[in-house]
């Protein structure tokens, strides 16, 4: 992969929600999906072979401890290329940073089987496409006063609200606002979500990234975005009165 630093953002994001992951490798690319230990969030990723500068693979399941993977990826420097290489004999995944020389980390494989967890195919009445930075900042604002946030769609507006014991926060995005790329409102809806989870889900998002949010009424939220050619999908169960 061209940039190890970019891929680090992906590993940073999934490792806040998951402890371990089983990468399903095939000729088409790499995919994986898993629920967090408390079964509140689901993380799914898909890396098409095209996202790699070079990709040679046949079918394998590669179980990895994400804490170790994150530690290694944190050592990536800008301009490092990333090479992921399976050593079947030693049962290790080699993570190689290539730049002025080569640095190789060998991670022990975990005996995990590919998860049967799939993102369910649900129709959502509302879709918000928003600049990642604007959404992330609004979550940080909401975090000042509460540990959960209410996401609402009404009258062609997307609202992010937090109610503390004494203090409140509200962000409002209209269709014409610069932060909004697209707003499809089918029906008024509102759902409440834990802020720690939501902030973990957007951890790797930086300015220029666009997030797609699917929202229903007291329904799990679905979120999609791409980082470094990696397609990420998240589901988050709501808080319910």
């Amino acid at each position: 992969m061209e940039s190890a630093k970019d891929f680090k953002k992906v590993v940073d994001t999934i490792s806040t929600l998951l402890d371990e992951i089983c990468f399903e490798v095939s000729e088409e690319g790499i995919k994986a999906s898993a629920m967090d230990p408390s079964h509140v969030a689901l993380v799914s990723l898909e890396i098409p072979s095209l996202a790699f500068e070079e990709f040679t693979a046949d079918e394998h399941e590669i179980g990895i401890d994400l804490e170790a993977f994150k530690k290694v990826m944190n050592r990536a420097k800008s301009k490092d290329k990333l090479i992921l290489e399976l050593d079947e004999e030693k049962n290790k995944l080699n993570i190689i940073f290539e730049n002025t020389g080569k640095r190789k980390f060998s991670l022990a494989l975990l005996d995990l089987s590919a998860s049967s967890v799939k993102v369910p195919d649900i129709e959502y009445p509302n879709v918000v496409v928003i600049k990642g930075e604007a959404f992330k900042e609004a979550l940080k604002d909401a975090d000042l006063f509460s540990d959960y946030v209410i996401l609402k769609v009404e009258n062609d507006k997307f609202l992010i609200q937090a109610k503390g014991d004494l203090n409140d926060f509200s962000a409002e995005f209209e269709k014409d606002d610069a932060a909004i790329v697209n707003l499809e409102v089918g029906e008024e809806a509102k759902s409440a979500f834990n802020l720690d989870y939501l902030m973990d889900m957007v951890k790797g998002v930086s300015s220029g990234d666009i997030i797609k949010i699917y929202l229903g009424n007291d329904m799990p939220l679905k979120m999609e975005y791409s980082l470094a050619g990696v397609n990420l999908t998240f589901l988050l169960a709501p808080r319910i009165e």
């Binding site: 629920m35 509140v40 709501p238």
Partner: peptide, 14 residues
């Protein structure tokens, strides 16, 4: 106050 529910409360999952 609201209560956190699980994804399995909505879908057959996992």
């Amino acid at each position: 106050k609201s209560k956190q529910v699980k994804l399995s409360d909505f879908f057959k999952i996992g």
